[in-house]
Design a protein around this nucleic acid. Structure first.
Lengths: 218, 218
DNA sequence: GCTTGCGGTTTTGTATTCAGTATTCCTAGT
DNA sequence: ACTAGGAATACTGAATACAAAACCGCAAGC
């Protein structure tokens, strides 16, 4: 086993992300650095470093002198994220070698089918969704694009986790995966892109309608 | 005038960016924190915070224990950036209200024309290019998208600044601006997107061919 | 009654210190 | 001569300390 030594700031970053996704913190909430650092069990320095990293990713906001706060959730941003993700993932598919893509299609279809049957807990859905997209993107050679996608997906997942009922996510994910896999098996890249876009955008709309708007600010 | 008070880390970040763009540092070069901090005139803390922010933007790399280094320039990444930018900016155009877009078209055409005639220094070209794109994107309501574009453009500009002869940039920019403005005046969004994409991708290729590869690693 | 100025307190922003790790350079052994 | 080992050095990563700015409450004045 390759022993791994991760910087503290990375671990803190992950901890913060899970807290944000599990609802352990309320969106928009201000951050008291000493208190939070104590809670996590590190000093302020690595905490601040994690906060700064998350800030440039758009997950945390800050104001000079006022400190950091967890980014507020807004219906507006949620709707903004959908087209961005679909455009980026569509591009990723387009840039992937068609041959490789077609090979992946079978695996994707299988994963999509398994998905349906499985009674999945909320967190499990996310994990599976991430896994599926990981496979789909695994043929894309554009590293920079992949890293961007990862960032944006993080933001989106936060919304899904917090304000979306399980069944809705299930619905979006299942339909999306199946449709895309079908297109990819046929080598129909434009079709896959359309499916992606339709699912993301419509999915976001649908989700917003039934969202328990406890968290949303606007 | 609204008095502005920016955090030190922000100012350091800008300073680092200009150093990277003006070639004051060589790509891939390791960073000595104490030395660089002294040079800039701040302590290590805000410097590190700036470095971390730039790292999540992809402009700086780090390895645990080894510290930070300025991101190396690779032909590969340069080629990777082009399709990402064009996809994002294309999406931005698509999401902008057509009416507003058409209003902007005239201004864009005028700016593009001025551009040609002006004997522009290297830095001036960049400034004008930024300005032009700023106008083009000013009708896009998707904040998240705009912020992503800004980040990616930063990375791209670094390549252009360092390894591209003036005339080549001029060529790309002039052709791109004129073509896009024309399409937008006609309300031809798909055409504008195509023009964008063609210019970015071909431009990148052309630039790479004639690039003084002093800086490039691969 | 509402505003406004002041003192104290809390919290952030930055500097400094400490500890742990990588690197370098020298020495000793083959 | 060349390599392995180890001490010395330098630098990063994290913790702590300090300074400055923002918040809170209260009281005085309009």
């Amino acid at each position: 086993m390759a022993i791994e030594r991760r910087a503290l700031r990375e671990q803190v970053r992950d901890e913060l992300l899970t807290r944000m996704r599990t609802g352990a913190v309320t969106p928009g909430e201000g951050i008291n650095e000493v208190q939070l650092a104590a809670e996590i069990g590190v000093s302020r320095t690595p905490l601040r470093e994690a906060l700064i990293a998350l800030e440039t990713e758009g997950q945390i906001e800050s104001e000079s002198g006022k400190g950091f706060r967890f980014a507020a959730l807004s219906a507006r941003e949620f709707e903004e994220l959908a087209p961005v993700i679909s455009a980026l993932e569509g591009l990723a598919i387009e840039l992937s070698p068609p041959a490789k893509m077609q090979k992946l299609a079978a695996r994707l279809a299988k994963l999509a089918a398994e998905f349906d049957s499985e009674v999945a807990a909320h967190s499990m859905i996310m994990t599976r969704d991430d896994e599926w997209h990981g496979v789909m993107l695994s043929a894309c050679p554009n590293q920079r694009l992949l890293s961007l996608i990862a960032t944006v997906r993080q933001s989106f997942h936060r919304y899904e986790s917090l304000l979306v009922p399980n069944e809705a996510v299930m619905g979006r994910v299942a339909a999306e995966h199946a449709a895309i896999a079908r297109c990819l098996e046929d080598g129909d890249i434009p079709g896959a892109k359309d499916a992606l876009q339709a699912n993301w955008v419509n999915g976001a709309k649908r989700i917003l309608m039934q969202a328990s708007s406890t968290y949303l600010t606007a």
